[in-house]
């Protein structure tokens, strides 16, 4: 089972000095936060806002590369989550054949947004995410976070 997800936005995570891409399903019942680096975040942000940068970014180059041979991105799937790291697959069609290529979620999402391709998450990722997210949240808690409860 896979669930279609929409990119809801980007957040800055000051604790990890990284960015979080927020994916939500259409019912708004499931949420996937995916941590990405600065340059990946800026590439995703340009695609969300539909801004053409003065020079093509790496993911625009990636799209041109596929376009040159009429290879089409059909969908991308966030397939697995292991030790806080997400894994993704890009599904393509080219010359009447289908191909599946392993990818980081950040590249898959940046490419999907530029290709108008749907983004899916596997059921296991959504299930694991809720427990791993809790672990990570607990790990990140600092003594002062508990103090806030008193105020």
């Amino acid at each position: 089972m896979i669930t279609q997800m929409q990119v809801k936005g980007l957040m800055f995570d000051p604790y990890n000095n990284a960015y979080i891409v927020i994916l939500r399903d259409d019912d708004q019942s499931e949420m996937l936060p995916i941590w990405v680096g600065k340059s990946e975040a800026s590439s995703i942000s340009l695609a969300i806002e539909n801004v053409a940068p003065p020079r093509p970014m790496t993911h625009d180059f990636m799209k041109s590369y596929l376009d040159a041979f009429n290879a089409k991105v059909i969908s991308v799937v966030i397939t697995d989550l292991s030790e806080h790291t997400y894994f993704a697959k890009v599904h393509l069609t080219y010359a009447d054949s289908e191909y599946t290529v392993d990818s980081r979620p950040s590249d898959a999402i940046a490419l999907a947004l530029r290709s108008q391709a749907p983004i899916f998450a596997s059921e296991s990722v959504i299930r694991k995410q809720s427990s791993e997210e809790l672990d990570q949240w607990l790990e990140n808690l600092k003594p002062e976070d508990f103090g806030k409860l008193d105020s």
Binding site: E40, F61, M62, F69, L92, V101
Partner: peptide, 18 residues
Amino acid sequence: PRPMSHDLIKSFGEHLGI
């Protein structure tokens, strides 16, 4: 440890024969 953006483009090329 993880394929970066240009590794992904290379991987597309290997899969599609480009």
